[in-house]
Computed example of a mutant assay.
Amino acid sequence: MNYKLHQYVASVFFLALFTSYPSLAQHFSTPPSSTSNKQLKTEEQLGRLLFYDADLSRDGSMSCATCHRQKYAFTDGNKTHPGVNNDHGVFNVPTLSNVGAFKKLMWVDEPVHSLEEQALVPMTGITPVEMGMHHREKEIEKRIANNSCYIKLFNKAFPNLVGNKIALQTITQAIASFERTLTSVQSHWDIKDHYTNEMQKGESIFFGKGSCATCHTPPFFTDQELHQINGQMGKAYRTPTLRNVELTSPYFHDGSKATINEAILGHETKYTSVPKLSQHDVYYLEKFLDSLTDMNFVTSPDYALPDKTCN
């Protein structure tokens, strides 16, 4: 396909897909067709509060936002993040940019197929221990149910649910609904605002001789497949999205590459289709990757810590 045509088709597909995001919110107990827009908005509001609530961790020291910080495109700027036991994390915190559209949610091939399932991993996982709530699931529900504001929001978000509305299922469902709102579509590349000649040169390399788009495929700049890209990795890992990559250092599954330059050079020709690139090529590639930063995404008050906690 002609490159310009390919870019146009990708951009059109990208925008069309995001207009359908509300329909991606899957409900455990209530079919999406019976969920009103008002209910969904309440569910997203509820999920946002829960995303920033440290009561979801054993000692009240960690929330989802502890590791997924908005100013870093919902990463945290560290190689890995320790959990409540201060154990070292295993994987670099991935960005949540456009995570609602992803089919693969983990660095490795694990049977986690939805954001609802993924929300349980940091809360109740044991390898490593993150938020430390394994076998404390009822404690999570109890803490949330002790808050009158939460009770009101759960009743509004899940009016058709029979029985206890504050349950682990509805908690993770609400968090997932908020995470599906985390859409990043206003980068320089998307809107061509301040899209410099250097960025354009880097774009030509990215889609041309650099073969970067083979795995980092628009519109999300990931093919969501598992690849081994050098001899040090030892196994295959999920291709990370390059959306907001300027803000998500360090890089790779273990955070072993501190800069974008190191990450580009970490792709070995033996394992990938990326050829040996000149210093000029790498420089322009970096400029293009900078164009994928969406400052609206990392400054929008819609995604930020709520002004008021739920109390």
Rank of each mutant, 00 (worst) to 15 (best):
Y3E: 13
Q7A: 13
V12Y: 12
L15R: 15
L15E: 14
A16F: 05
F28L: 13
T30W: 07
L40Q: 10
G47S: 15
L49C: 10
F51E: 08
M62S: 11
R69F: 02
F74I: 00
T75H: 02
V84E: 08
D87N: 14
F91C: 08
N92P: 03
N92T: 10
V93I: 12
T95D: 00
G100L: 02
G100S: 10
F102I: 03
K103D: 10
K104D: 11
L105N: 06
W107A: 14
W107D: 15
A119K: 04
G125N: 04
T127K: 14
H134P: 02
S148N: 15
Y150D: 06
I151D: 12
K156P: 02
A157N: 11
N160W: 08
V162K: 14
A167T: 15
Q173W: 03
S177T: 10
E179K: 01
L182K: 02
V185L: 12
H188G: 02
H188V: 00
D190A: 12
H194M: 07
N197E: 15
G202S: 14
E203T: 02
S204G: 07
F206L: 04
G210V: 03
G210S: 06
C212H: 03
C212W: 01
C212E: 01
T214V: 07
C215N: 04
P219C: 11
P219H: 10
I229W: 05
G231H: 05
G231R: 11
T248R: 03
S249F: 06
D254M: 06
A263P: 00
I264T: 01
I264P: 02
T269Y: 09
K270T: 14
K270C: 09
K270D: 09
S273E: 14
V274I: 14
P275K: 07
K276G: 08
K276C: 12
L277H: 01
Q279M: 07
M295F: 13
T299A: 12
S300R: 04
A304F: 03
A304Y: 02
C310H: 01
N311C: 09
